[in-house]
Design a protein around this nucleic acid. Structure first.
Length: 297
DNA sequence: GGTAGACCTGGACGC
DNA sequence: GCGTCCAGGTCTACC
């Protein structure tokens, strides 16, 4: 027996657009399912069960298949998780109205761009974001894979596959293990401290999903997390649906430098200034800007 | 508020 | 195979 859920999305919606919105699909326990045009995600449910969610386009939303019967609470959790992960309820009509006036963003509405693929929990997204800092993408993939393989709960039908580790599981490890086994390097104490504060209840990260806190306050709270600086905080704000900041990394500096500064070095202030007119949509304008002509940068 | 140096890893490169 | 250099954000100490 299997379980199937059908979830509607606020139009316009494109599952491939969400999947390709950034690199998260390449990080375990996500896996792209190209034959179905969707993805798989190994979820560790509150009930303790570990299941594979198979997601593909269906009608104006998505269909979620699970290879096992789920009880009512588990079904509700899966529906809530997928709705959050894909931003099914997000409305970008205000952004699209502005984007129509800008040739470099004229494509976003037709492609249904705007949603960014999220993990089910802000804890997972925060750990992954910390692991994107000060390293190449290959390093991020390696560190996330190691964390999942070493500390994630195994899938019963295929124990070689694992869910993302829970805060409690990571909190139960130690700095040296995270350095030696997962090769997190100097990031190990950051991830450990985050896991411990979430597991102990000292930090309620998940309460920030859908919070109505002002963006400035949210920004402040994210920056208070060790290992989360300006770039990581801006990235996490984007995942939380707040686009007031541009995640300034070396790639952003390269793009903005070549687009508006004739290849001369630029800093965060120049990047923020380049998108200042986009107000609460700065981050999205940067993210979906048509940089194609700079792809060899 | 701004800046320099340390942090850690893996890849590129030269020998 | 080995050693060196470099890129990638954040933190801390210092001015």
């Amino acid at each position: 027996m299997t379980t199937t859920l059908t979830l509607a999305a606020h139009p316009p919606f494109s599952l491939p657009a969400v999947i390709k919105s950034h690199g998260w699909i390449q990080l375990l326990p996500f896996a792209e399912d190209e034959s179905a045009g969707g993805f798989r995600y190994i979820a560790h449910l509150d009930s303790g069960r570990v299941v594979t969610l198979r997601v593909q386009t269906a009608g104006d939303g998505v269909r979620v298949d699970v290879d096992t019967p789920l009880d009512a609470a588990e079904r509700a959790q899966v529906a809530q998780a997928i709705t959050w992960m894909l931003g099914l309820e997000q409305d970008f009509s205000a952004f699209y109205a502005l984007a129509r006036q800008e040739p470099k963003l004229a494509h976003v509405e037709a492609r249904a761009q705007g949603r960014l693929l999220r993990s089910p929990t802000l804890f997972e997204d925060t750990v992954k974001t910390i692991l994107t800092t000060n390293t190449a993408w290959g390093g991020t993939r390696r560190m996330v894979s190691a964390l999942v393989a070493e500390f994630g709960a195994p899938l019963p039908d295929d124990p070689a596959q694992h869910a993302f580790p829970t805060p409690a599981r990571l909190a139960a490890t130690d700095d040296a293990t995270l350095r030696d086994v997962a090769r997190l390097g100097y990031r190990a104490p950051y991830v450990l401290a985050l896991a411990q504060s979430v597991a102990s209840g000292a930090l309620d990260l998940e309460a920030l999903q859908g919070t109505d806190l002002p963006t400035a306050e949210l920004h402040k709270r994210l920056l208070a997390i060790k290992g989360v600086g300006r770039y990581a905080a801006a990235s996490l704000l984007m995942l939380l649906g707040r686009y007031d900041f541009v995640p300034v990394d070396s790639w952003a500096r390269t793009l903005v430098s070549r687009e508006w500064h004739d290849g001369q070095p630029v800093g965060a202030s120049e990047i923020e200034a380049a998108f200042a007119d986009w107000g609460p949509w700065k981050g999205l304008a940067y993210w979906f800007w048509d940089w194609d002509h700079l792809s060899d940068a």
